[in-house]
Amino acid sequence: MRGALKSGNVFCKNRIGVTGLGILSVFILTAIFAPFLAPYDPCEMFEPMAPPDSQHVLGTNDIGQDIWSELIYASRISLFIAFTTSIIATFIGTLSGLFSGYYERFGFFVMRVVDLFLALPRLPLIIILAVFMPTSIWNLIIIFVLFGWPITTRIIRSEVLTLRTRPYIDSERMMGAGDLYILGRHILPNIFPLVVVQFVMEARHVILAEAGLSFLGLGDPTSKSWGMMLHYAFEYPTIFISEVWKWWMLPPGLCIVVVILALVFVGFALEEILNPRLRREIV
């Protein structure tokens, strides 16, 4: 516990990390409390293409929906997809990484599968899959998980491989501890920091990938994310001729960039804190 507190302390001293975490919390809170924060129901229709005024902070879109409310609700979808995917992908990656690092033969087979996935061109395949699968949030999540877990597996496995040969693991075996006990009590806590970093990395990746797919029109039209907003805005014929893009395209685009930056900041900070090689000063 003291160890955790100490790294918490170090984290607070890390200005970049705190900034990232702050930004991220704003977005997460917005997503959670969207119904209270949004002035209108995002489906409610007003006069279309109204420029920003006191009624509609960011104006309305081509079918008259309030863009500000739409943006707030879209953060729900974008963050939901990102975090759900990372949770599942990191979970699968961690478990398979643990076992494939600990059991050599099992690991051999898992790593062949991982190699296969990592050798495949990720983006084109995701697009092809997305084209052929019915569009829904869950299908998107499935696709992202499918391509997300192998990296985590590989990273966790290599860490387990080195941990496994530590004398304290051997001494645990000499005391008659079983494999699951060793994995759960002695190896998992030591790779947990890595798992957290992987989680953040994966979330960052998915935000970008989801925005890309949705922008191409491969997202779920029934639950609008930031990417979908961009998609619809881009389809509007005169989007760049008038000033409309400033309040219709820019805000979701900025949201995507800012969230990704925040995740990068948090990832940076975590890595610096958790990786003692980076932390130690050279005398």
Binding site: G3, P167, Y168, D170, M174, M175, G176, G178, N190
Partner: peptide, 22 residues
Amino acid sequence: LRTFRPRMQMIFQDPDASLNPR
């Protein structure tokens, strides 16, 4: 082997690495 093991023990070269750091 698991039930037999506690009767035999090993002390390793590097004491710092023989204990779980956490």
